[in-house]
């Protein structure tokens, strides 16, 4: 879990993501429609002319009562051919050098988290975005059987 991190301050706590996975941050007023969107999969945006499916991070972490948003701040994550947008609403973003993080890092896993950093003044959960990506794929494939066969 070494490396510089982007820190996201949600109501539910602080979350970290490796900066190496961050391709960019985009702000949009409204998320375009994504057919089959459900649960925490909320829409789609374009980033450098490529489509990016977007998930609501708060919802993915179990908070399904986010306030109505006037802005969607979307962190675009990209690695090994996978791309995913993580909507953090209007939450604050900060950057931490690896040396600044300090504290102890464990591999305690949670729902879409792969570790925990016990920093000096707070606890930071490390987001397992590949797991989020896989779950998003699964959710958007709920009608795959319709595509595979006419009899489902």
């Amino acid at each position: 879990m070494k490396g510089d991190k982007i820190i996201i301050a949600l109501d539910a706590g602080k979350f970290a993501i490796q900066t190496t996975a961050v391709a960019g941050v985009v702000e949009v007023e409204k998320l375009p429609f994504l057919p089959g969107r459900a649960g925490f999969v909320t829409g789609i945006i374009s980033f450098r002319n490529e489509p990016v499916a977007v998930v609501d991070l708060a919802m993915a972490l179990g908070d399904f009562s986010p306030a109505e948003r006037s802005t969607h701040k979307v962190i675009v994550l990209r690695d090994k051919g996978r791309t995913l947008g993580m909507d953090i609403g209007e939450a604050a973003l900060s950057f931490l050098w690896d040396e600044e993080i300090g504290g102890k890092t464990t591999d305690e896993k949670g729902l879409f988290t792969s570790g925990r950093i016990y920093a000096k003044d707070s606890t930071i959960e490390i987001i397992d975005w590949p797991a989020l990506f896989n779950e998003t794929s699964r959710m958007l494939t709920t009608e795959e059987n319709v595509k595979k066969s006419p009899n489902s």
């Binding site: 994504l34 057919p35 945006i45 489509p51 996978r82 009608e143 795959e144």
Partner: peptide
């Protein structure tokens, strides 16, 4: 028309998408 790639590759009801002039993806 761009092909649909994971995680939207098995999306129901759409065969591809295009990015419009204003940046919106439309299926």
């Amino acid at each position: 028309v761009k092909p649909l790639l994971p995680p939207i590759s098995k999306l129901w009801g759409a065969t591809g998408l295009t990015i419009m002039g204003d940046g919106r993806p439309v299926f």
